[in-house]
Design a protein around this nucleic acid. Sequence first.
DNA 1: CAAGGATATCGACAAACGTCGAAGCAGAAG
DNA 2: CTTCTGCTTCGACGTTTGTCGATATCCTTG
Lengths: 124, 124
Amino acid sequence: MSNSSVVELPVLNQPDGAVAPCCPPLNERPLTAEEAERTAKMFKALGDPIRLRLFSAVASHEGGEACVCDISDVGVSQPTVSHHLKKLKDAGLLSSERRGTWVYYRVEPSVLVAMGQLLTTAAR
Amino acid sequence: MSNSSVVELPVLNQPDGAVAPCCPPLNERPLTAEEAERTAKMFKALGDPIRLRLFSAVASHEGGEACVCDISDVGVSQPTVSHHLKKLKDAGLLSSERRGTWVYYRVEPSVLVAMGQLLTTAAR
DNA sequence: CAAGGATATCGACAAACGTCGAAGCAGAAG
DNA sequence: CTTCTGCTTCGACGTTTGTCGATATCCTTG
């Protein structure tokens, strides 16, 4: 149980391995309730300072992945770090894999791209 | 009191009227605690489905602004709509202006751009 | 198999959040 | 001045969230 298939957030994985953003840019048209529900989970996951630092630490780490031990110096207890990493994982922003003693978290580059597209101003 | 100077989020308004993103792309380097604190407020504001729909409704509305009456059909009471709009305003994502009977909310295009830059994959 | 380090889960608790109805305020219209 | 409409503020309430210490799990090492 490492790379458990990301379900609905924040990109839709295509059968051919490509990714498509789940929703149009925010200024293209009003999001539907369902789109907003899915997308909000993503923003919510990044809406906590500790989680944002953890996410940024993973995203900026060499190879786009980091061991928990590399990034857990954020001023909260170890269980809290674990809790936040789980939330990021549940939101589909990170995946994790155990290698020996350590657990590595990684961010899919496509996630960053898709999230950026959401916020990139549509041609108007 | 309409366009009250946006203080710290999510972009830093330059004296010459230009804007700079408040923080580097999330995968450039780990955010500092202060950067994360500021940026998380922005994400948090978009981390609620109702707020996201309101924001999207304003952002996609003609001219980048909308009257409250144009966008308040999101399934919650009118005071709740007002409460969420206030949160988006406090987060620096929207500004408001009263014109006669109606209050108009608007989103600064630079905000969308700056937020997109946060999430756009840095060259690595 | 025993010991130890790394991470996850559990249970509890205070603080923050989303929601509503009621009441208040500001312009427009009579 | 009074009434009406659009919006905000207030006060209350149940739910969710972030945090911790204690405990459990997984894996390596001796």
